[in-house]
Design a protein around this nucleic acid. Sequence first.
DNA 1: GCTTATCGTCAGCGTCTCTGACTATAAAGT
DNA 2: ACTTTATAGTCAGAGACGCTGACGATAAGC
Lengths: 146, 146
Amino acid sequence: MASKPTKTFGDLLRHPYEVMNAELYAGLADHGFPDVRLAHSAVFRTIEEDGSRISDMAERAGITKQSMAYLVESLAESGYVSIDPDPDDGRAKRVSLTDAGFACEAAIFKLSLRYERKLGERIGQRRMKELRHLLEDLNNSFETEM
Amino acid sequence: MASKPTKTFGDLLRHPYEVMNAELYAGLADHGFPDVRLAHSAVFRTIEEDGSRISDMAERAGITKQSMAYLVESLAESGYVSIDPDPDDGRAKRVSLTDAGFACEAAIFKLSLRYERKLGERIGQRRMKELRHLLEDLNNSFETEM
DNA sequence: GCTTATCGTCAGCGTCTCTGACTATAAAGT
DNA sequence: ACTTTATAGTCAGAGACGCTGACGATAAGC
């Protein structure tokens, strides 16, 4: 047999993550969102319902504000977000999802859920649910302590 | 409460994956492998004990041979792999891990295992083991069918 | 032998992240 | 009030890393 050790935990996370992303963003393109890319997820996951500032989003996403500004700018060019001056702070701007942005966000959730169910058909919906549960615990453990 | 839906499965995979990688490659730098980066893992995971060809590694990793050549070249410059002509095929080259390359691979496994145990301390070693098991099943389900 | 396929390279490009330096505004200290 | 310090965002430049297309060299199939 192979002399290589067992797969690392990182490998076990990486493969499904990459396969899912490939499927997800291909599906998104098919559903009318061709120019939304994986990196943009940093925007969708950090923007708030009523709009957010670039710096805040950058901090939540764990990237620099320059990087976040770059991503936001590209989504603005595609019409998924609007950028307006912040009424309370002359330095700041407020980034908000447009209708197209909300529609895209909804499509991401829908396709994600669909794909999760598809995976469940492979390993069993019950095991899939258990997997999600364990991953949620793991994710929560980062926020709690650390 | 928030009106945002539950985290997607992709989000649940992404966060631990990114946190682990940050920890892993920081640790790797501390252990004397400062110039090994995440992208290089495509080399370490696809290279065989007795050496491999660039095209084969590219195919296994799911990237173009140009991209694999780029990664291999950068590891060769740092001394982790050697590149020799293939004795059986005048077109091809054989890429092999050097002693430093094997040492790095070993360090990756050691640090990964250490981190996995650390996560286990957070959510429970037993739950962590179950999580690994489910992820292994999920990974296997890609190779089997699809 | 001639044709076709494969191995690897060169050149160029797009995306995405970073650092460092900067302007404008806001907040805090005195 | 004025000065200092912190913060929001921008501009410029760089590096990493994936891609495509075009190419020369060798191998394999007919």
